[in-house]
Design a binder for these strands. Structure first.
Length: 461
RNA sequence: UCCCGGGUAGCUCAGCCGGCAGAGCAGGUGGCUGUUAACCACCCUGUCGGGGGUUCGAAUCCCUCCCCGGGAGCCA
């Protein structure tokens, strides 16, 4: 089928050229002798204006060209005499692939709430908002690979089904081929040796441990894939299924890690500005939670750094009343993170060197014996967007931390092997892809930045 | 899981100290030769989230369940 994407037509088209475009009708405006259709094909934020003269045979087909109808239009591209668009198509023929009954089609020629659109997830990508968000998501996904590949990182594919139940990153989904009818809810008494893998298996909560052994052989690697958490989290920033990016670098320390994280976010902003200006401009206009100027600033301004201990001192000085106590040794609460990003630093901030007791066993113990070489990247509006660390490469220290934190060695001997044979300093971080998309697009609810959100009691589509 | 706030026409919402269920938009019909979420006129639209209770009478008061949103915890 001969067709041109509206995006390339608007960028590279020439007046007078014969064109053929396919898409979905956004609006139709008609009077007795002339009609206009705004056509969108998903390739770009912009619609293409179709002009149908009353004398054209295509005019009779207009009754089927209601909002939502899929059509093909052929005609001649012309410079538009009216304001609002560069080009328009003087239509000679229309083919209707599928009409959309205006009495029942849920999308109207007006704004809908995001809550309503969540109920019609199969149709919401046809709206300006979700078209914009999903195109930005694509720009970001592509830029992730571009960034790492450009730096010589190797994309590695860590498993989705894992036997490792001790990653400490939260509740996991069990994967089983056993008859569900015969399983009790808490899996008590289930003999997983009779299961498909001969032992209990889970959906991964992180590819980090596996990425570590790939880094300890291939140098610089990254993962980018789906991740699962079975936590009963009901918030605007949690999903049960989300995409995570986890770079892991051999021969690297926390400083290298922080530098990579910062460079990474800045690069992504640059690409969105280059390729998604129309999308960001639209989101800015309707929601005002993102802007081209804001992303430009983010792409240029260095992130601020503060140690956990200094952050505690900063919070101590605050005149603001906090619900949760501020005390060295306690984790930062949402309200504390928000205070740091929104009031103190007014932008992204990297908090480093957390107390060892509140961080994972694999994080490298600092020389003070009290803190670990960890970093969290906090951003306004969302909070933690990345978490990373230098990994503990010293066998003795690692085993001692595992013992203290009651992490069983069983099943992790391979992880310890990496410290027995050719161990080296290494570091990495995890970035929640949807939180990144949220931050860049300014969408408040994480369920609006992924086509099919999975959350407790939510698995439609 | 906890704490708040909601659920009334296809959508957004008013009505809530009990007394005939409403508006705007959408949709339909007609009009209009350059519109931009077109405009103008007329018309249509209901399991008031489900169940139970109080009452002569419940969208409105009480109980309960379900769903949605915001916040918190867990985290990315």
């Amino acid at each position: 089928m001969e067709r041109m994407q509206i995006k390339s037509l608007l960028s590279y088209g020439n007046s007078g050229q014969e064109v053929s475009v396919c898409g979905w009708v956004r609006t139709r405006r008609e009077s007795k002798g002339i009609a206009f259709i705004a056509l969108n094909d998903g390739s770009t934020q912009d619609t293409l204006q179709l002009v149908i003269a009353g004398t054209s045979p295509a005019f009779r087909k207009l009754t089927l060209c209601n909002t939502g109808a899929a059509i093909k239009a052929t005609g001649v591209l012309k410079d538009s005499p009216a304001q609002g668009q560069k080009f328009e198509v003087e239509v000679s023929g229309i083919e209707v692939f599928g009409d959309a009954d205006p009495a029942s089609y849920p999308l109207q020629k007006k704004g809908h709430t995001l809550e309503f659109l969540r109920e019609i997830g199969h149709l919401r990508p046809r709206t300006n908002t979700f078209g914009a968000v999903f195109r930005v998501r694509n720009i970001l996904a592509h830029a992730v690979h571009e960034f790492f590949q450009g730096k010589g990182f190797i994309w590695v594919h860590t498993p989705i089904i894992t036997s490792s139940d001790c990653e400490g990153a939260g509740d996991m989904f069990t994967v089983t081929a056993l008859d569900p009818e015969k399983l009790s809810k808490d899996c008590r008494g289930v003999d997983f040796s009779q299961d498909f893998f001969g032992r209990r298996a889970f959906l991964t909560v992180s590819g980090q441990l596996e990425a570590e052994f790939l880094a300890m052989s291939m140098g610089d690697v990254y993962t980018f894939g789906p991740t699962f958490r079975a936590e009963n989290s009901n918030t605007s920033r949690h999903l049960s299924e989300f995409w995570m990016i986890e770079p892991e670098m051999a021969f690297a320390d926390l400083k290298d890690d922080m530098q990579l994280a910062e460079e990474f976010v800045r690069f992504l902003c640059v690409r969105v500005l280059e390729k998604g200006e129309g999308e960001i401009a639209f989101l800015d206009k309707f929601y005002k939670n993102t802007s081209i100027a804001g992303l430009k600033e983010l792409s240029e301004k260095p992130f601020l750094h503060i140690s956990y201990s200094d952050a505690i001192r900063e919070l101590d000085k605050a005149t603001e009343k906090f619900e949760f106590p501020v005390k060295w040794g306690l984790d930062l609460q949402s309200e504390h993170e928000r205070y740091l990003t929104d009031k103190v630093f007014r932008g992204p901030v990297i908090v480093t060197d957390y107390p060892e007791k509140i961080k994972a066993f694999y994080m490298r113990l600092n020389d003070d014996g009290k803190t670990v070489a960890a970093m969290d990247v906090l951003v306004p509006g969302i909070g933690e967007i990345m978490g990373g660390s230098q990994r503990e490469e010293r066998l003795e220290v690692l085993m001692e931390r595992m013992q203290q934190m009651q992490v069983p060695r069983e099943g992790l001997e391979w992880y310890l092997d990496l410290r027995r044979y050719g161990s080296a300093p290494h570091a990495g971080f995890g970035l929640g892809f949807e939180r990144l998309v949220q931050y860049i697009t300014g969408m408040h609810n994480i369920r609006d930045v992924i086509p099919c959100p999975r959350a407790p009691q939510t698995i439609k589509f």
